[in-house]
């Protein structure tokens, strides 16, 4: 009897280390290298994208005199159209924050899912949890619902692999 499956997604491991684990888990060379390259490229691309966005924000904040006014809008209860905010995304528990995504009042759950998927595979399938009734939101409805309205200012993801009967 031996370990057949190791799930280690979303850990801060280097490509070399992941390759070592993949080699250890596979008796023969698989397509893991290509997969790892893609993952690493996606990570670098995302990092670059975040850097550019941060730079643009700083430039805008410096140039725009109404920076403080913008900040006030971001903390307002109801978001005005066009105003974007960063909201934390938690997995399983409220304090298990994986990261933040940028949303506005018109961002749908489907858009948010795309943004979260850019972080890489979380290891488990997940669904959005409604802040209104605490129930899961079906994947078929994600295109019709707004994230701020249905998930609130802190998005909670629920693992889909909880045991079901």
């Amino acid at each position: 009897m031996c370990l057949e499956r190791l799930i280690y997604h979303n850990n801060p491991l280097s490509r070399a280390c992941i390759a070592a684990v993949e080699y250890a888990m596979s008796r023969e060379r698989t397509q893991a290298a290509k997969l790892l390259d893609d993952m690493e490229d996606a990570r670098l691309e995302r990092k670059q994208d975040m850097k550019e966005r941060e730079l643009a924000r700083k430039i805008k904040a410096a140039a725009d005199e109404g920076g403080e006014e913008l900040r006030d809008k971001k903390t307002a209860e109801v978001l005005e159209p066009g105003v974007k905010i960063w909201i934390p995304v938690s997995f399983g528990r409220n304090n298990n924050v994986l990261g933040k995504i940028e949303v506005d009042s018109a961002t749908t759950l489907m858009d948010a899912r795309i943004n979260i998927n850019k972080w890489g595979d979380l290891g488990d399938e997940w669904v959005f949890l409604s802040v209104n009734d605490g129930q899961e939101i079906g994947e078929g409805e994600e295109g019709k619902r707004q994230i701020i309205w249905d998930c609130g200012r802190q998005v909670l993801l629920r693992p889909k692999n909880w045991i079901e009967l």
Binding site: M1, C2, L3, E4, R5, L6, I7, Y8, H9, N10, N11, P12, L13, F91, L98, L122, G123, D124
Partner: peptide, 11 residues
């Protein structure tokens, strides 16, 4: 048989 250590800050 199966071990899941994803999202565990393993460096």
């Amino acid at each position: 048989h199966e071990l899941n250590i994803s999202r565990s800050k393993l460096t």
